[in-house]
Amino acid sequence: MKSDLWQISPGFEEVMPAEYRELVDNGPFGKKLGVADMGTFKELLEEHPLCAGCGLALSLRLTLIALPNPEDTIIVGATGCSSLAFPQVSVHNIHSLFGNQNAVATGLKRALSLRFPGQVKDVVVIAGDGATCDIGLEAVVHSWFRGEKLATIMLDNEAYANTGGQESGMSRIGTVLNMAPQGKKFSKVNFPEIAKAAGCAYVAVAEPSRPKRLEQAVRRAILVAREIGPAYVQLFTPCPTNYKFKPSETLSLIKKREQEGVFQTMEYLSPEAEAYIKQIEEAKR
């Protein structure tokens, strides 16, 4: 992006509402900030309507902070809880429909590659588990087959939360949810393995109780997608509202699952991705 895109025209500074002036004076554009800087700068996400204790909202907040180049990032989302927060996100972002996010992102990424050859334009897909694993599966997996240079981030709250808590492919077996009144009858889909098999050069499972690891996964995914090939990050984002636990327990639930041995984080890099990430991270040191 051109550095003057986030500059108020001379004379209008005084009439601009405070939140915009804060973004100009203390926002993240061009500053290379991260989770370590949280609490000290104006974030890309503005006040949003998601529930108290929402694991998805926290993960989205952390993901936006982890963007390596927010000034050149365009996000494609899908219908779901996260799409209620996206109007309040200070980068260009698209909501088209439910499940077509990776197809929209494919067209967008290719268009931007044509219009801005040699320039960084990160296209990041951020969508829920229903949009990614169920209704959008074809578009997601085919974008990987084609090797589209997209980072796909699943906010996995293990249900259709926006529509009132229905079972999704990512719900765990036996869970009683709407549309699964006798409990879900098949296992949680092993999407990271699908991502690997479909050609993702980077695959990670992370969660918001360890923000720096989440940040690393998101950054690596976007960097790999920029240069090597498709990348997939699955973020476990528990939903207190539909799973009916206390909003204060969102993060402890993740830890509990880990202790029970039914959730674990992972990271996979293809050899090319590994070499590339190594090169970047060494250069930084």
Binding site: Q7, P10, F12
Partner: peptide, 22 residues
Amino acid sequence: FPGPLVLWNWKEGVAEKAQAII
């Protein structure tokens, strides 16, 4: 009511236009 195209100094000519609006 100035909109984004003049509020943000994003391309050549905008600053002058903003001044003219003021």
